[in-house]
């Protein structure tokens, strides 16, 4: 089967457009330079302060730095790839031409997703060699690195889907970009802050009533798992406390600990659901004739 039959014309066109532009290689280069540069700087700084016996500590520090940098860059790059996908067609006046053609709304959605997804995966995968450094130095398990990359891939998919969804109803590129970043920031930073504040109040209110405390703890875990930052943080804290990645339990006052799904599993499920929802809504929005 030829590539033209496997991909919709929009997928191929968007791939051409993205990969032909010097910007794609520029962003990739900057991405690698920033992550690699910061990792090397941190490594050099750690080597100056630590003795060789603490190599695992250096490895852990490097892992946190590299993962954190990757996550921040994914949060910035991925939404930008689709935030103007439809609004720019609208601004250029080509949106009506596309919708008046035989291309289906799902083909448009798939077409607009293919290139950004591929590019985001490329960005993440290209930084994988940097993770070999903390792995060699020790202090982290391969499973930790795999979970970290997995969370980033899943986050990339959702951010791209959110960008596409926003661009289907925003009239201008600027509006679409602002709204997309606002939503991503709420998800990545706003929700953990809210969960932290709510936990402080909840601990005072619900402690002592086992059922309410369990319900509240479950709700907070779901909320916290909506952010890749808090998900990875809690996963690491749990791993260092219990030595387990796939089991997660929370102590309940005066009762047996509450066992929950690991945060990265919750994130995977919630992000998969949100991605499907936003993509479905995008296709629906594209498929409907305009009202104005």
């Amino acid at each position: 089967m030829s590539i033209n039959k496997r991909f919709s014309p929009i997928s191929l066109h968007e791939l051409h457009k993205l990969m032909r532009s010097p910007r794609a290689f520029g962003v990739l280069t900057v991405f690698l330079c920033v992550v690699g540069g910061v990792a090397l700087l941190m490594y050099a700084a750690a080597m100056l302060n630590e003795t060789r016996r603490n190599a695992s500590s250096i490895g852990q520090t490097l892992y946190f730095i590299i993962s954190g940098m990757q996550l921040i860059l994914v949060c910035f790059v991925a939404p930008a790839l689709t935030a103007t996908a439809i609004s720019s067609e609208r601004e250029r006046g080509t949106y009506d031409i596309l919708r008046a053609s035989l291309i289906t709304p799902w083909q448009i959605v798939r077409g607009k997703l293919t290139a950004p997804l591929g590019y985001t995966f490329l960005l993440i995968l290209s930084t994988l060699p940097l993770l070999s450094l903390p792995l060699i130095l020790g202090g982290i398990e391969i499973a930790e690195a795999v979970i970290s990359v997995w969370v980033m891939l899943i986050s990339g998919i959702l951010f791209i889907s959110i960008g596409l969804f926003v661009s289907t109803f925003c009239k201008t590129n600027l509006g679409a970009i602002i709204l997309t970043y606002a939503l991503v920031l709420i998800l990545v930073i706003g929700i953990p802050i809210f969960a932290l504040i709510a936990s402080s109040f909840g601990a005072a209110v619900f402690t002592g009533t086992a059922t309410l405390e369990r319900l509240f703890t479950w709700l907070m875990m779901v909320l916290t798992s909506l952010s890749p930052i808090s998900t990875l943080t809690i996963t690491e804290l749990n791993f260092y406390a219990s030595g387990k990645l796939w089991e997660f339990s929370v102590p309940i006052t005066g009762a047996s600990p509450m066992t929950l799904l690991p945060p990265f599993v919750l994130l995977t499920l919630s992000y998969a659901l949100l991605s499907l929802l936003t993509l479905g809504l995008s296709a629906r929005r594209i498929g409907q004739p305009d009202k104005s």
Partner: peptide, 21 residues
């Protein structure tokens, strides 16, 4: 409106829309 071809050549532009149809 004259939409423009977003970096496509004239031939690619028509081929793209031929695929869309």
């Amino acid at each position: 409106t004259l939409g423009g071809g977003a970096d496509m050549t004239a031939q690619e532009y028509l081929t793209f829309y031929a695929a869309c149809y």
